[in-house]
Design a protein around this nucleic acid. Structure first.
Lengths: 289, 289
DNA sequence: GCCGGCTTCTCACATCGTGACAGGCCCCCT
DNA sequence: AGGGGGCCTGTCACGATGTGAGAAGCCGGC
């Protein structure tokens, strides 16, 4: 057995994904975009970091141009990042690239979110039996986060749903499960903050309609999502609870809408079984019934 | 074949590794430690990020205590990080953990440094034949960085030498190779900035002695390091050059000192072969001779 | 229901970052 | 070699901006 440094799967080489949380983009065009609170110089610095990440390296000039900061400022901020190993200055090529500290931080993040082996094997089993991409999403702070995925060429994951995804709760199956687990007040607060942006023609953007559907979901204990997140794709999820009965996460699958229609019952059964097994695990430390 | 989110191998749960570049620590005890230049608020913010990473989550109070910043300041900075998804605030547990943006940045870093498949297979082959941990270190900016490692339980890597390692050039085999590739002036500058900190009793800390050894190395084209970096461990490295004859990286192995003594010749031969193959690859795009 | 912690305001001060400008450096081109 | 055109790094005075003491919310726990 040999071990190597595992390279995290590359996200697609997309130009502009949902990098920023999809804030409602059509609020009658506010003149001043959020620019919320926070320390401005830090926001600038982080913006620089992300530009460099997106482009796979950038010159100071490019950064200055695309963010609109004056050049000396850009240099100053970038040098601060270089000093702390968040950036590397490659003088030969007159450009900046990401530094090694980011590797360590990424590793730390994975350690903090690490998914137990039992969850991994159960999700893998679900993937095999359901012939669909299978996900585990955990609750962390005020969000649901996708923390584990098993898919295959025949049943690939939904493109934006990679490790760490936590946006658009109103349009995803596991997001809906999370919303049903919240108190009315929590839900109000969450939806107020994130809005219900339209992602596809089928996305639920009406608060009342969403509430009604959540009602149904909390009775049936399974959440569906039909082309509301990505056209042509369907997801379903079931919650996982700990010994106190609190939602700690959820199990989900995704697949092409047309390949699912005929076996919804079946898939629901498998999801419930997996979720029940994991709930047992979170109660007692064992999956076995 | 199934694909999953690959978790980068965890670094050892070490408390305080060489996180900061090992600046010469004994310069007659300057009253004000470096605190070099740079934007102070940003350095504070990054320090907070790293504390949270090290501890696997921390409360604002802990951060305030261990860095000596006043509490409101800590909250303000941490909230800025939360807004940009570098941190997550877990209110239930009254603590902060790392955010998901760090995953993306880590992935981008790996994309930027990505090692070609040819290099990976050659390093793996070297590992098998030499029965030793095998490394590829690339030049990036003004540093050598370990970018690929193949090891195994029987021949494990040197503990601090994980992906991204780029310190202590004077005490590592691939570091010495890099130093031989520099002009006298570049070398002066590099060693001036980094110093020659003593890591083991055998570490070369005298500039003249190092220069003499580099002389020898540039003739023999192979660099050895005997317990100068980690006690009981030995490393050797050979440079890899591109079509312009410039060093682009190096190939290295490490093993317990006592298991190597009898086969230094053999290992040198294998290192040279691997390095020659990779040099061919960097010249012509193919390893084949 | 009250207490004690964490967390978030408020606000006046001066620090600290800012960015126009100019000079140095290095590389490339001829 | 010599020049020229970038990239990069200083310098500096202005004032916006971050700062941190204090105090008031907020929330959970006893």
């Amino acid at each position: 057995m040999k071990t190597t440094d595992a390279l995290p799967l590359s996200q697609p080489p997309s130009p502009r994904t949902l990098a920023q949380p999809p804030l409602a983009a059509n609020v009658t065009a506010l003149p001043a975009p959020p620019a919320l609170s926070g320390v401005a110089s830090i926001q600038k610095t982080l913006a620089i970091l992300e530009i460099v990440a997106e482009r796979g390296g950038a010159t100071a000039k490019e950064v200055s141009a695309s963010l609109g900061y004056p050049l000396p400022t850009v240099y100053r901020l970038m040098q601060t990042l270089v000093q702390s190993d968040y950036l590397v200055h490659i003088r030969r090529e007159r450009k900046f690239e990401l530094g090694y500290k980011l590797h360590r931080l990424g590793v730390s993040l994975h350690r903090q979110i690490g998914v137990p082996a039992e969850v991994r094997t159960e999700i893998a089993r679900l993937h095999r039996h359901a012939r669909a991409a299978a996900y585990f999403a955990a609750y962390r702070g005020a969000d649901v986060v996708v923390t584990y995925i098993v898919d295959s060429p025949a049943a690939p994951r939904l493109t934006p749903l990679s490790f760490g995804f936590h946006e658009a709760a109103h349009a995803t199956a596991f997001g809906k499960i999370m919303l049903t687990g919240m108190s009315g007040e929590q839900r109000d607060q969450y939806l107020e903050a994130h809005g219900l942006p339209r992602l596809t023609p089928a996305t639920i953007t009406d608060r009342g309609e969403l509430e009604r559907q959540l009602e149904t979901i909390s009775r049936s204990q399974v959440a569906w999502e039909h082309e509301e997140f990505v056209p042509g794709m369907t997801c379903a999820a079931v919650g996982v609870r700990n010994s106190a009965g609190l939602l700690v996460g959820s199990v989900a699958i995704s697949a092409r809408a047309d390949t699912i229609a005929s076996r919804e019952r079946d898939l629901e059964r498998m999801l419930r079984e997996t979720a029940a097994g994991l709930s047992r695990y979170f109660r007692s430390g064992s999956v076995r019934r």
